[in-house]
Nucleic acid binder design. Structure first.
Length: 289
RNA sequence: GGGGGAGUCGCAUAGCGGCAAUUGCAACAGACUGUAAAUCUGUCCUCUUCGGAGUUCAUUGGUUCGAGUCCAAUCUCCCCCA
């Protein structure tokens, strides 16, 4: 019997969570979340975690199971998810994956290259270099270390440059080589992608409505409880950073309506990026329902 | 009624005689193999064979080789005094 993974993709607030639950019920199976933020136990309201009721209807994996203080990334996710999916297939013919993190979904579908983890010190050094000498310093560094990648990177994107440099240094070989060596993984199961398509204007309304609900549900209190962790990359997230921008919980409290508007707008921007991602990657697999 | 200020490409903003016009936001399109709800790019008056071409800065006239910029009148808005 063929095993099948159905991936529910699409922009935020498009109804992925609900659709995935319906599919899981239909096939009497479980859900693997592919969401880089819902995975954290401290983030709930702001990342639209499925409700307690929803979580009780169908078993969800990778939701609220890690701390924001423990670094996690796509590579870890690929490993954990593929292992878990393997286990789930022992008891189910179909498994549902759902999430808005395109890169995470990609990792499940194609796998991701094996690369060494750079030390935090190295990353900080490069960050320092960037701050003190500007992006040109990173550019010339990468040009020397990995000319092939330099030829194709977005040279004005500091994160891309930084990443390629730190990996090349740690591995002792060019980043581009490591990527070139990665071959698309053949998964021992079929994959179907369902993209949730919502009219942009309707999606925008859904987003606005959902953000209002988040505020009403106590997003401010949730953010306050994380205020001391705002330096963490994980907290550089729509729904949280808009509060942090005001400096103190007290100042943020007096600006709730501007913050709400900012979150709505930023969520919309995020949704558009997700749609662009889906358009490019899954257009041939498009919309099966 | 009297006095003062202002009208610039969706919104905001720069511009002080050489300008299709600054910057921010929004909008739209896109990139992205360990920060990914992150990070970054392009377009953004109209047309374009991407070399350019044509129309613009409330309106109408004027000064000037040349006007968003100076002058006059008109219209609209804001503030102050009545």
């Amino acid at each position: 019997m063929d095993k099948r993974l159905i991936i529910v993709a699409g922009p935020t607030a498009s109804g992925k969570t609900q659709h995935a639950i319906e599919l899981a019920q239909k096939y009497d199976t479980e859900i693997v979340s592919c969401d880089s933020r819902q995975i954290y136990s401290e983030l709930c309201i702001g990342v639209a975690r499925p409700t307690i009721e929803q979580l009780s209807i169908v078993k969800h994996h990778f939701v609220a199971c890690r701390s924001v203080e423990m670094p996690y990334n796509v590579f870890d996710f690929e490993h954990d998810a593929i292992e878990l999916i393997g286990h789930l297939f022992c008891h189910h013919d179909t498994v549902i994956a759902v999430g808005g993190s395109g890169l995470y979904i990609d990792a499940i579908i194609n796998g991701i290259a094996v690369m060494p983890d750079p030390t935090p010190e190295l990353r900080n050094q490069l960050k320092d270099l960037l701050n003190r000498q500007g992006i040109a310093a990173l550019q010339s560094m990468l040009q020397e270390i990995d000319p092939d990648y330099y030829a194709v990177v977005d040279k004005s994107n500091p994160i891309r440059l930084q990443r390629a440099i730190e990996v090349s240094i740690t591995a002792g070989r060019p980043y581009s080589k490591l990527i070139a060596e990665h071959t698309i993984k053949k998964r021992p199961f079929d994959i179907e992608v369902v993209v949730m398509n919502v009219e942009p204007s309707a999606l925008r309304e859904r987003i606005n409505h959902r953000v209002d609900e988040m505020i009403d549900s106590g997003l401010y209190e949730e953010v306050c409880s994380l205020w001391h962790l705002q330096h963490l990359n994980t907290l550089n997230t729509v729904g949280y950073r808009e509060f942090f921008a005001y400096g103190t919980p007290h100042q943020a409290a007096s600006a709730i309506s501007s913050i709400t508007e900012a979150i709505k707008l930023n969520t919309w921007h995020y949704a558009k990026k997700q749609m662009t991602w889906c358009k490019k990657r899954y257009s041939q697999r498009e919309n099966q329902f």
